[in-house]
């Protein structure tokens, strides 16, 4: 899923400091699963923001709405009847949400309430870790099923570098050296020969480096049916 963190209250409050009536829009997709943009989090943010503004003697009206997803226009359209009741909108979604909102409601000020961090999963309750860099050409099968592009601090295709120690990356003690894991797994499986030789240069055109990307599934495009 796409993982995100909530922006600091200070930052969010500063965004809406001049607003008196706002809408907070959550998303039932990834950010609900990673407990940062679902109904619960939207309610909590609304409450704490009201507390903060009451304390300043500058009350704010906040309504909330949680959409099925903010990355599909049919759901984004669900707030078309109410959006003009608000001066601004805070989107609790990954970076896609506030942009779909901005694109549909061109006159409206849309603030991002979250910082989108990575594609990852929960390794334990309350802990999420990065697994994918969205490079557009998956090759994890060449690396014992693990991705050095997303998980090596230097994205080495031919690791591990000289900073690998006891299975831990040199950048900090909490970061696994994924190359250590890859090598250990290959040795255990008796497939060390897979790591002999040089892996060639990566083609980054399929990654963000090739410019903004687009996926088209012809059989689904309405005009084609």
């Amino acid at each position: 899923m796409i993982v995100a963190d909530q922006k600091s209250l200070k930052e969010i409050l500063a965004m809406v400091k001049d607003n008196k009536k706002i809408l907070i829009v959550g998303c039932k997709g990834c950010v609900t699963v990673c407990n940062v943009g679902g109904l619960k989090e939207v309610e909590i943010l609304a409450s704490i923001m009201k507390i903060a503004r009451k304390k300043q003697g500058n009350d704010i009206d906040i309504d909330i709405k949680v959409l099925e997803r903010q990355c599909d226009n049919e759901y984004v359209a669900e707030i078309s009847d109410i959006i003009n009741d608000y001066e601004a909108v805070i989107s609790l979604a990954c970076g896609v949400g506030p942009q779909f909102l901005s694109e549909m409601y061109k006159e409206k000020i849309i603030y991002p309430g979250l910082n989108t961090t990575f594609f990852g999963g929960a390794t334990e309750h309350g802990v999420w870790e990065e697994r994918c860099a969205g490079c557009g050409s998956c090759a994890i099968h060449d690396f014992a099923g693990l991705c050095p592009i997303a998980r090596c601090a230097k994205s080495l295709m031919n690791g591990p570098c000289g900073g690998s120690s006891d299975g831990v990356c040199e950048i900090n003690k909490d970061t696994v050296c994924i190359w250590d894991t890859i090598v250990q797994k290959k040795i255990k499986a008796g497939q060390l020969e897979d790591l002999i030789g040089v892996k060639g240069l990566k083609n980054w055109r399929t990654a963000r480096d090739g410019g903004p990307r687009r996926s088209i599934r012809e059989e689904l495009v309405q005009g084609n049916i």
Binding site: S8, L9, K10, L13, I44, I48, I51, A52, K55
Partner: peptide, 8 residues
């Protein structure tokens, strides 16, 4: 923690 952040 959250209240402290908004000065309560």
């Amino acid at each position: 923690k959250t209240l402290a952040e908004v000065g309560i």
